[in-house]
Structure formats: structure tokens, C-alpha cells
């Protein structure tokens, strides 16, 4: 079956003072219908820029090249009119910071109904009904009353749910959620994850979750793609990524994530050094300077993303023992 989203050799470059920054390089990905893809990485890994490029939302000094097909249609750098038909209606994006994602001087209700009236051409009255429905699905307390409120009157968790509601209104085929729970408290995070999990199970909406949190990926995703310094270093099923990670960065990231079973008497394994400067990337593998398994070749040549076993790719010269 044709994947819903396919992306080939996507590159994102920013012009900055003193040169260019290659924020995303050579990314290939597919998202099937009803599938949930996790994109894991730390800040600066290019995980957000990759999807902002797909949505045509790069900042003005950025440019994207490559190909992106949504439902068989090329959408990368498509004219704005065409993108507007897809964005919001077929692909919706949930941003991390719910306060800046909402218009501060518009009532929640108006922001929700506007989307429906614009994209679906329904009447104001029907739009309101559908908005309340979606808020109810999200277990939003007293939705009818809160439609009259402004964003500042809502708590962070409620704002985040308004953002998700905005994304859900038009029943999109693909939802891209950028760190949807990072700004939320533990118990609210549990509510939102629970909801996204349910959405995936009950409808065949495809979901992309961009996150730095292994726990979130573990809970929701079928497949995961790990990014480092603008490139995909490993991709595979969530089970394989967790049980037999092939890239030293994935291994190190997993070990550095504190779990509830960590021994308080022992040091947490860490990744030495810090994330590389994208303007001064080393010649070989970008992770080599921090890698405990690096061999001389890693510092000279950049490893390509290669198949390790069925459905699993890694970009590393070092073979892992199975």
C-alpha cells in the first residue's frame, strides 16, 4: 500500500550570519496509514525542522530541498494555496508551546470554529457543535463554558488540549505532534498520552511524535527514527530500538535516561562532551568524538544509513554483537 507520507532526501539549510547551517541532511522516511512514527533526538538534532520543512513552515532564512509526497502528491515547496488546502485539513500539527500556538486575544471558541469554517466550509453553528464534541472527547472540563474563555484563563494542560483539539477538528489523516507533553505535568502528561494512544487505536489516523523522551516513544510509537546532528542515525521498530539498538548513540541515550530502577549508589552512564556545533561538524561521523566505540575510520568517513536486519537501519561502521 502507498504510504501516507513519504519523504526522500530531505535537506534543510539555514542562512545565518557567518555561513550556512545544515539543520537536516539526507532524511528519508515513510509514515503508513494508522502508523505512529516516533522521531527521537536531543535539541539541535533537526527533528523539529525536518517536519516544519515538510509542512512548509520554515523560518524565512531556511530552505528545503528533496521530495515529500503526501498521499502521492508532491508537497515540498508547493505554492501556498495548495499547502493551505492540505495543512490543517489533511495534516495537522500540534506544537510544544501551547501559549504561543494560540492567539492570545481570541476566545478559545472562535479559534476552534474558525478552523472549521475556513477549512471545511461548515456553518458557524455546526462548527460550534463539533468544537464542543472534540473538547468533550478530550475530557475537557465544562467545554461549553470554556469556549468563551481566552487562552490566558486556561491552565497549561487545558491549553495543550485546545491545541490538540484544533488539530483534530477537521479529522486529519496525519497529526504531527512536536513534544506534545514536554511542557505538561506528570499527571496531565498521562492524560494526554492516554488520549493520543486511544486515538491511534480507534481511528486510522497516522501520528508522528517528535520527542526527546524515550518513555513517550515507548508508549505510543510503532516505529522510531533516532536523529543526531541533522541526520537519521538509526531507525526501526520500537521493540528493536529498545532491545537491540545498533547505533552507539541510541544505546548511550537509552542508558543516560534515568529509570525508576537506577541504582542510586552508582553513577549514571553519560554521553561525554556535548552536542556538536552544526556549523563545525567533524569530517567523519558526527557522533564519533563522543562515541565510546569509535574506530579510526569513524573520524575520517561518514557512515551511510544501512540495513542491519529486517526493517532496521543504522548509520555506523561498528557492527554490534547480537
Amino acid at each position: 500500500m502507498r504510504p501516507l507520507l513519504r519523504c526522500e532526501d530531505l535537506n534543510v539549510r539555514f542562512n545565518v550570519r557567518g555561513g550556512v547551517v545544515d539543520a537536516v541532511s539526507n532524511v528519508h522516511l515513510t509514515v503508513g496509514r494508522g502508523e505512529c512514527l516516533g522521531v527521537l533526538g536531543e535539541s539541535g538534532s533537526g527533528k523539529s525542522q525536518c517536519f516544519l520543512a515538510i509542512m512548509g513552515l520554515l523560518s524565512r532564512n531556511g530552505s528545503a530541498s528533496g521530495s515529500v509526497w503526501f498521499d502521492g502528491r508532491e508537497i515540498l515547496n508547493a505554492p501556498r494555496k495548495e499547502l493551505d488546502r492540505i495543512r490543517g485539513r489533511s495534516i495537522a500539527m500540534v506544537f510544544q508551546d501551547a501559549m504561543s500556538g494560540l492567539t492570545p486575544f481570541m476566545r478559545i471558541g472562535d479559534q476552534l470554529t474558525e478552523v472549521l469554517v475556513e477549512h471545511m466550509g461548515v456553518s458557524e453553528h455546526d462548527a460550534r457543535k463539533r468544537s464542543v464534541e472534540v473538547l468533550e472527547i478530550l475530557q475537557f472540563p465544562q467545554p461549553r463554558r470554556r469556549l468563551r474563555m481566552y487562552p490566558y484563563e486556561l491552565s497549561g494542560g487545558m491549553r495543550q488540549r485546545v491545541m490538540i483539539a484544533l488539530a483534530l477538528l477537521c479529522k486529519p489523516e496525519l497529526i504531527i505532534a512536536d513534544e506534545p507533553t514536554t511542557a505538561l505535568d506528570a499527571t496531565i502528561q498521562a492524560q494526554v498520552l492516554d488520549f493520543l494512544g486511544g486515538l491511534k487505536r480507534r481511528t486510522d489516523t497516522s501520528v508522528v511524535i517528535i520527542t526527546h523522551d524515550f518513555g513517550v516513544a515507548l508508549e505510543l510509537c510503532d516505529r522510531v527514527m533516532v536523529m543526531y546532528a541533522g541526520r537519521v542515525v538509526e531507525s526501526g521498530s520500537i521493540a528493536d530500538i529498545v532491545s537491540r539498538p545498533q547505533h552507539p548513540y541510541t544505546q548511550a541515550l537509552f542508558q543516560a535516561t534515568l529509570g525508576m530502577d537506577a541504582d542510586p549508589e552508582r553513577d549514571i552512564p553519560t554521553i561525554p562532551g556535548q552536542a556538536p556545533d552544526l556549523q563545525r561538524l567533524p569530517a567523519g561521523c558526527a557522533f564519533a568524538p563522543r562515541c565510546s566505540q569509535a574506530i579510526p575510520r569513524c573520524h575520517q568517513l561518514r557512515p551511510e544509513l544501512k540495513k542491519r536486519f529486517d526493517g532496521h537501519m543504522a548509520a555506523c561502521f561498528v557492527e554490534q554483537r547480537q
Partner: peptide, 26 residues
């Protein structure tokens, strides 16, 4: 208990343990 279950659930590979999801807001 709810706080602990929210973390345990998301950090461990086994998903069999049911999570306590609190209703509502602080």
C-alpha cells in the same frame, strides 16, 4: 500513587501495568 504510576508506566518496556490516570486539573 498516581504520580508513581505515571512514571513507571512510561519508563518500562512492559506495558501491562495499568496506569492511574487522574481526572481533571490541579
Amino acid at each position: 500513587r498516581a504520580l508513581l504510576s505515571a512514571v513507571r508506566h512510561s519508563r518500562q518496556a512492559g506495558r501491562e501495568e495499568a496506569r492511574i490516570v487522574l481526572a481533571g486539573e490541579v
